[in-house]
Simulated assay, not measured.
Amino acid sequence: MMKLESVKRYLEKGGSEDDKNGSTIDGKPLRFFERFIMQGLRIDFIEPGRIICSFNIPPRLLNAGNFLHGGATATLVDLVGSAVIYTLGAPMTGVSVEINVSYLDAAYADEEVEIEAKALRVGKAVGVVSVELRKKATGKIIAQGRHTKYLAAHNCCNFRP
């Protein structure tokens, strides 16, 4: 069991001191986190209410077990799920109300993953999307997510999907 001070140091340093996937945040540009996660994402198909993109897993997004970090997966569900709302004409997406991710398999460095996001419902106040990550070579599901966004800000902009 880790001592409390060790846990504190681990969290404050963003991982172990010898972590090759580590990064310092000081001095990074605004919205660095989104770019850090999504750099290398390619859009393969886009239409109103649906996006399919692909992504080779970069080593920077691996966890200690050397597979795609669950937090990176959840962030992809968040960001790609939000983007599919934009395809329906939304000027902005609002805040997350709920995000759920079921982790079903692992993805490793340089493995190509397909991410499919679908808008299930986009109304006046709430948008609900589903996001699935699959291994591109086999179609095997890595993770399934559902993301609910509060869209009330759209009422001021006459947003109608």
Results as ranks from 00 to 15, higher is better:
residue 48 P to H: 03
residue 38 M to L: 15
residue 156 C to I: 11
residue 125 A to W: 05
residue 55 F to D: 00
residue 129 V to R: 08
residue 85 I to R: 15
residue 49 G to I: 05
residue 113 V to R: 00
residue 116 E to P: 03
residue 118 K to D: 12
residue 6 S to K: 15
residue 144 Q to C: 12
residue 116 E to H: 00
residue 79 L to I: 13
residue 25 I to C: 00
residue 15 G to A: 12
residue 35 R to M: 12
residue 43 I to F: 04
residue 97 V to P: 09
residue 86 Y to P: 11
residue 75 T to I: 05
residue 134 R to E: 01
residue 48 P to W: 07
residue 60 R to H: 09
residue 125 A to F: 08
residue 129 V to T: 15
residue 119 A to I: 09
residue 155 N to A: 09
residue 79 L to R: 00
residue 107 A to Y: 00
residue 25 I to K: 06
residue 3 K to Y: 14
residue 10 Y to C: 08
residue 40 G to P: 05
residue 118 K to W: 07
residue 56 N to G: 07
residue 26 D to H: 01
residue 67 F to K: 04
residue 150 Y to S: 03
residue 16 S to P: 10
residue 115 I to L: 07
residue 23 S to T: 10
residue 143 A to C: 07
residue 111 E to D: 08
residue 127 G to D: 04
residue 82 S to R: 05
residue 106 A to S: 12
residue 134 R to C: 05
residue 149 K to Q: 04
residue 102 S to W: 12
residue 50 R to Y: 10
residue 91 P to F: 09
residue 142 I to N: 00
residue 31 R to A: 14
residue 73 T to M: 05
residue 134 R to K: 13
residue 116 E to M: 13
residue 108 Y to F: 15
residue 1 M to E: 09
residue 107 A to C: 06
residue 153 A to Y: 11
residue 19 D to T: 01
residue 148 T to C: 06
residue 32 F to V: 00
residue 101 V to R: 02
residue 113 V to N: 00
residue 114 E to K: 02
residue 161 P to R: 15
residue 100 N to Q: 08
residue 152 A to D: 15
residue 79 L to M: 12
residue 19 D to G: 01
residue 160 R to L: 09
residue 124 K to N: 11
residue 110 D to K: 04
residue 62 L to H: 10
residue 88 L to M: 15
residue 77 V to L: 02
residue 142 I to F: 03
residue 96 S to L: 11
residue 74 A to T: 12
residue 27 G to F: 05
residue 82 S to Q: 13
residue 145 G to I: 02
residue 141 I to D: 00
residue 47 E to Y: 04
residue 108 Y to W: 15
residue 29 P to R: 02
residue 92 M to V: 05
residue 50 R to W: 05
residue 11 L to Y: 14
residue 95 V to F: 10
residue 5 E to H: 09
residue 119 A to T: 14
residue 64 A to Y: 14
residue 134 R to D: 03
residue 19 D to L: 06
residue 147 H to D: 01
residue 60 R to S: 13
residue 146 R to G: 02
residue 4 L to P: 13
residue 38 M to A: 07
residue 49 G to S: 01
residue 130 S to M: 08
residue 130 S to E: 07
residue 46 I to P: 03
residue 27 G to R: 11
residue 138 T to W: 12
residue 4 L to D: 10
residue 38 M to I: 12
residue 156 C to Y: 07
residue 157 C to S: 11
residue 2 M to E: 10
residue 99 I to D: 00
residue 108 Y to Q: 07
residue 48 P to M: 06
residue 119 A to G: 09
residue 29 P to K: 03
residue 75 T to F: 00
residue 104 L to F: 03
residue 14 G to H: 05
residue 25 I to D: 01
residue 93 T to S: 09
residue 20 K to D: 05
residue 157 C to A: 14
residue 77 V to Y: 04
residue 126 V to E: 10
residue 137 A to Y: 09
residue 115 I to V: 15
residue 87 T to L: 06
residue 70 G to V: 06
residue 51 I to V: 10
